[in-house]
Design a protein around this nucleic acid. Structure first.
Lengths: 138, 138
DNA sequence: TTAGTTGCAAAGGCTTTGCACGCGC
DNA sequence: GCGCGTGCAAAGCCTTTGCAACTAA
């Protein structure tokens, strides 16, 4: 189920019960949890797990490129395990729900040379905003 | 020079020396300051200005739609006075420098209906990343 | 005059750090 | 057994808040 865990094992990442639980919590699509939510869900399975460990682990997973840090409207950062298939985010302006989306075409194509200021542009991160069906219904 | 100030006057925004200085600091293109940087620059001209006032003022300008909150890699949010001509950001992965850019075409066009999950999508925010000339030279 | 703004200081949310203990390898 | 990972508690950064004094209109 979680190929995240398998990839980590393959990288000879030192495995502990805490790290396993964090990786498990971060499995699946459309998962965008704050550090605190990760800690809460991890603590359901491993009550003694500390916030510091969750932060350490998240930071490491980000450094390994296994998860992506997403900073949204609210205050706390969110963590997105879907780092392997490149994707963008669609955020509801009402309730903050996030969905992963896969736009068509090359996002970099829209930026003409004259607009690149000599930068070697390598990446484009897109956040689409709008109302989700249930917020629109109100 | 600062049409931001003129627009604010036109809105019958209560003008104080603190608010004027904050608005002046936030004038120009490619300006992307943190609240603390705004406070520091404002304090050069008005030494007694408090952080709380800077935060209050920034929050109000955002609510008025006169400046835009930009959340970047670092921890603190940045404030962008260029809220009138829609634009996107080009960020250097090396030094964090931000430039305003104007991509061609409609950014929303890349998101097919099948990828919209029923959302009424109204906006797309794009962050391009890459190395600026001086970082690339190292 | 008077409602709205300021400054201070304290509190708050989120995150990082230092250090002793414990556990995977 | 060694070295890295963990937990605790404290500190840190960024931001918000409560309230009395002040000031633009």
């Amino acid at each position: 189920m979680s190929d995240l865990l398998e990839r980590l094992r393959g990288r000879r990442w030192r495995m502990t019960s805490q790290r396993r639980v964090v990786a498990e919590v971060l499995s699946g699509d459309h998962v965008h949890l704050t550090a605190d939510e990760v800690h809460a869900r991890a603590a359901e399975r491993l009550p003694e797990i500390s916030r510091a460990t969750v932060y350490n682990t998240l930071g490491e997973l980000v450094a390994l490129g296994e998860i992506v840090e997403v900073c949204t409207e609210g205050r706390a950062k969110r963590y997105d395990p879907n780092a392997h298939r490149p994707h963008q985010h669609l955020v509801c302006s009402g309730c903050g729900t996030i969905r992963d989306v896969h736009p068509v075409g090359d996002p970099l194509a829209g930026l003409p040379d004259g607009q690149r200021f000599g930068f070697a542009v390598s990446e484009a991160e897109i956040t689409y905003r709008g109302l989700c069906p249930s917020c629109a219904a109100r």
